[in-house]
Design a binder for these strands. Structure first.
Lengths: 143, 143
DNA sequence: TGATTAGTGGGTGTATGTGGGGGATAGTGG
DNA sequence: CCACTATCCCCCACATACACCCACTAATCA
């Protein structure tokens, strides 16, 4: 299970080292794609297959469904860790998330999220301030 | 499974190199045709057969069905990769999609979409801006 | 304190995308 | 039936990007 928050940086060659605690489950292959709230989602191959199947099954004839597939599937890229445990994010994904140099990697159980440092700071601030409110809102969906 | 976004260009001779990650499944033959949203769809032979069957089964008596068959079936052309992994798009398809020089190839699980760079940029911008909306809308169909 | 590990940085070789020359093939016109 | 042209596909050449190797530093652990 992926948990925790890590601050790493992307080097001149575009390489981002994955936290050691995440690596074991990614060596056999992983997929990164556009996530919601303009962060990136990184999945294990196995998890990705489940997601992709669901998305691919959406009806071709619905506009929103096509858009969502394009976001998720066309956004996806399968990556491999180099010998030092690093990955190379494609430019179009860095652009989507607004990633420059400093990124935050967060473990989210079945996926890893990748954020530009600035966005994460802001997002986190807001979440932490409103945590009680947010929790109340969840009452309805049965947590 | 086809995934990802690639930016390639068409050379003077009209050749378009297919991303390496897509080639293995296309060497045995592929079919390109008109797609929705004015992009082109590229299928493996196998996938194409499924699509063609479905489209051919549409009722002759419905105007929309006839039009759609003409879009898809009459639009189709089977291509082969040259030794360098390149294809040659027929002119009527390039015209349909408005393809000039720079194109974007996107992996969409069972098909590849081919877009003129400009159109893709605009389309993507719009999708990315609305991604949360689109996702919420899909709640209903169970993702 | 010494050894190991993790994150980072850089040099180098290979593979991929791209471009062009030349020969074979198919369509067109006389 | 032949000649001409345009198109396609082979081969080769080149540049860039990527993944390997190696090295360094800082943090962790015994």
């Amino acid at each position: 299970m992926f948990i925790g928050e890590y601050s790493h940086s992307i080097d001149e060659k575009g390489r981002l080292s994955v936290p050691v605690k995440f690596r074991a489950r990614l060596v056999s292959g992983c997929v990164v794609t556009r996530g919601l709230d303009h962060c990136l989602w990184l999945f294990t191959d196995e998890e990705w297959r489940k997601i992709a199947e669901k998305v691919a099954a959406l009806p071709l004839t619905q506009r929103d469904a096509r858009s969502f597939s394009r976001l998720v599937l066309a956004g996806a890229m399968d990556l491999t860790l180099d010998k030092a445990g690093r990955i190379n994010l494609p430019n179009y994904l860095k652009d989507y998330a607004g990633i420059k140099n400093k990124v935050i990697l967060t473990g989210m159980y079945s996926r890893i999220e990748i954020w530009p440092e600035e966005n994460w700071k802001n997002f986190k601030q807001e979440m932490e301030d409103k945590s009680e409110e947010i929790a109340e809102g969840l009452n309805e969906i049965g947590i």
